[in-house]
C-alpha cells in the first residue's frame, strides 16, 4: 500500500480539529462554528484522499511510461515546436490534441486490460501486448513527424486512436 509521509503535526492537528468541532456542536453560541470545523475537517480529509489517489495514479503512470516509453518528452517537444514555428501552430495544436487523446485512450485501455487480467483469459494478455506496442509505435511516429517538421495530423494518427479504443471492445 502506498505510504505518503506527512509532517508529525498533521495528524494531531486534524484530530484536534475534529474534536474541537464536535465539542463546539454541544454549546449554543458556537454550535455553527462546530459544524463549520467539522466541515473543514471533511474538506481536509477529501484533500488527503485526493493526494492519495494522485500518488497512486502517478505510480501507474510511471509504470506505463516504463513499458511504453516516456511520452512526456513528446508532449514537451510538441509544445516547444509549436512556439518555435508559429506558422505551423494550428497544425501542431491539432497534433497535440490527438496526442493527448491517444495517451488518455492508452491509459484507459491499459487500466481496462489490467483489470481484466484477473480473469483467466489469454486474449486479454495478448491485447495488453498490442496496447503497449501501439503506444510505442505512436511515440515513434509522432516523434518522427516532429523531427521532420511535418506536424499535420494524418490518417495514421486517427487510426492509431481507433485501434487503441478498439482494444477495449
Amino acid at each position: 500500500m502506498r505510504q505518503i509521509r506527512y509532517a508529525s503535526w498533521v495528524k494531531p492537528f486534524l484530530t484536534s480539529l475534529v474534536l474541537l468541532g464536535a465539542l463546539c456542536c454541544f454549546f449554543d453560541p458556537v454550535r455553527y462554528l462546530g459544524w463549520g470545523l467539522l466541515l473543514q475537517s471533511a474538506y481536509l480529509a477529501v484533500g488527503y484522499v485526493c493526494i492519495y489517489v494522485a500518488e497512486v495514479e502517478s505510480d501507474l503512470m510511471t509504470e506505463a511510461k516504463r513499458e511504453a516509453g516516456d511520452w512526456n518528452r513528446l508532449i514537451v517537444a510538441l509544445s516547444i515546436y509549436r512556439h518555435a514555428h508559429p506558422a505551423q501552430a494550428e497544425a501542431t495544436q491539432r497534433l497535440q490534441d490527438l496526442n493527448r487523446r491517444f495517451w488518455r485512450e492508452y491509459m484507459t485501455s491499459r487500466r481496462y486490460l489490467l483489470r481484466s487480467e484477473l480473469q483467466p483469459n489469454s486474449d486479454f494478455e495478448a491485447r495488453f501486448e498490442v496496447c503497449n506496442a501501439l503506444a510505442r509505435q505512436w511515440l515513434e511516429q509522432v516523434q518522427a513527424k516532429v523531427a521532420q517538421g511535418q506536424v499535420e495530423p494524418e490518417a495514421a494518427q486517427r487510426e492509431g486512436i481507433e485501434a487503441m479504443v478498439g482494444l477495449r471492445g
Binding site: 506527512y6 474538506y43 477529501v46 484533500g47 485526493c50 494522485a54
Partner: peptide, 15 residues
C-alpha cells in the same frame, strides 16, 4: 474543485 482541494491540502501540510 478537487485540484483546488488537493493544492490546499498540500499547502497546509508542506507538500
Amino acid at each position: 474543485y478537487f485540484y483546488v482541494i488537493n493544492i490546499n491540502f498540500r499547502i497546509l501540510t508542506g507538500k
